[in-house]
């Protein structure tokens, strides 16, 4: 099977501080990967490099056959193919939920308005907030907002979805409704890279687990093996603390 994402020897610095150290990563289509690790370990930076919200300084990142480099046109094309869900939702507060979902399809993918609204309603139904379509983000609960943000990303019909701690800003009660949507998405065959501390979710959907610490990938293993038989001591320590 071909690779949809390939990272080779990626290094990144914030000023003098090295956040990513020699990251190698390959993701095949339809694979689900969960990245975990202590805060400050570079996991968010890693997935933000994949759609170039952060720039890497060394190494190659190849997404769907296109290398990420200085060329702007490519980057916008890649970003349109890679959906991203943020910790803080980042819905557009001046637009209704429906407009949030149709804006990019209309202006970036040049979909006719009617078609874009159809797609939006389909995705809003999928995340079960079709009844909130005409409300503004400020009128929705956190869980609903995050589901709307997922629907917004899905409306671009991305090949890959990146999740940057999607449930960390939510009340405990609302975490489940968002995770349910993500499980459903995973079962639908989406390629997903998820940064999360929700280990229950990881066990349920992940093909691979990646554990990061201090900018390095410490351990990469099949999910079952990762939880039952972690190899490195650092991973064992981490798992013992959060499980």
């Amino acid at each position: 099977m071909g690779k949809i994402i390939e990272l080779k020897k990626v290094n990144k610095w914030f000023d003098k501080f090295q956040v990513l150290k020699d990251i190698d990563l390959e993701v095949a289509p339809q694979e689900k990967i969960v990245i975990c690790g202590p805060s400050g370990s570079g996991k968010s930076t890693l997935i933000r490099c994949i759609n170039r919200l952060e720039e890497h300084q060394e190494g190659n990142i190849i997404v769907d056959g296109t290398e990420l480099a200085e060329n702007t046109k490519n980057i916008e094309k890649i970003r349109a193919e890679v959906g991203m869900v943020f910790q803080q939702f980042n819905l557009f507060p001046h637009l209704s939920i429906l407009d949030n979902c149709t804006l990019a399809p209309i202006w970036v993918k040049k979909l006719p308005k009617k078609k874009a609204e159809e797609v939006a309603m389909k995705n809003l139904t999928r995340v079960q907030i079709d009844d909130q379509a005409l409300k503004f983000p400020g009128q929705l609960s956190g869980g609903q907002q995050q589901r709307a943000a997922i629907a917004r990303a899905l409306c671009m019909e991305p090949k890959i979805m990146l999740f940057d701690e999607p449930t960390s800003a939510l009340d405990p009660e609302m975490i489940k409704e968002v995770l349910d949507v993500m499980v459903d998405l995973a079962k639908g065959g989406m390629t997903m890279i998820v940064v999360t501390h929700e280990m229950g979710f990881a066990k349920e959907v992940a093909d691979y687990m990646i554990f990061m610490d201090e900018g390095k990938i410490v351990e990469r293993a099949k999910t079952k093996e990762f939880f039952e038989n972690p190899k490195s001591d650092r991973t064992k320590l981490f798992l013992s603390q959060i499980l």
Partner: peptide, 10 residues
């Protein structure tokens, strides 16, 4: 807001 817009390919 900037990041969300960028991540949608704008």
């Amino acid at each position: 807001q900037y990041e969300a817009a960028k991540s949608l390919g704008m």
